[in-house]
Simulated assay, not measured.
Amino acid sequence: MKKYFQSLAYLVFIAVTFWAITKAIQVYEKPFSLYENPLVWIAVVALVLVILMKELLNIVAQKKAEDLILEKEGINPAEVDNWAWYKKLIKRWTKAKAIEEEDEIILDHNYDGIKELDNSLPPWWVYMFYATMIFGAVYLVRYHVLGADSQEMEYNKAMAEARRELDAFKATSKDAVIDAATVTALTSDSDLSRGKAVFNLNCAACHAPDGGGGIGPNLTDKYWVLGGGIKNVFTTITNGGRPGKGMVAWGKTLKPKDIQKVASYILKFQGTTPAKPKKAEGELYEEETSTETETVEQAKDSIQ
Rank of each mutant, 00 (worst) to 15 (best):
A9V: 11
A9L: 14
Y10M: 07
L11R: 04
F13N: 06
I14L: 14
F18V: 12
F18C: 12
Q26K: 13
E29S: 13
K30F: 08
S33G: 11
L34D: 09
Y35W: 05
N37H: 15
I42E: 13
V45E: 06
V45G: 08
V50C: 04
V60E: 13
V60N: 12
A61I: 02
N76A: 12
P77Y: 03
D81Y: 05
Y86N: 06
K87G: 04
K88N: 09
I90H: 09
A98E: 15
I99H: 11
E100N: 11
D103N: 14
H109Y: 13
I114G: 00
L117E: 07
D118Q: 11
L121P: 02
W125T: 02
F129N: 15
A131Y: 03
A131I: 03
T132S: 14
G136H: 00
A137R: 02
Y139T: 03
V145N: 01
G147W: 02
G147P: 00
N156R: 14
N156D: 12
K157I: 02
E161S: 10
A162S: 10
A162N: 07
A162V: 01
A162K: 10
R163C: 00
R164C: 00
L166M: 09
F169G: 07
A171E: 11
K174D: 12
I178W: 03
A181C: 01
T184C: 03
S188I: 03
S193T: 10
F199E: 04
L201A: 15
N202Y: 14
N202L: 14
N202H: 14
H207D: 05
G211N: 04
G211V: 01
G214P: 02
N218C: 10
L219W: 05
K222M: 06
G227E: 00
K231P: 04
K245M: 13
K245D: 10
W250L: 15
L254P: 01
Q260V: 03
I266M: 13
L267R: 09
T273I: 11
K276W: 04
E281G: 03
E286S: 05
E287S: 08
E288H: 08
S290F: 01
T291D: 15
E292C: 00
Q298P: 00
S302G: 02
S302Y: 12
Q304T: 13
Q304V: 13
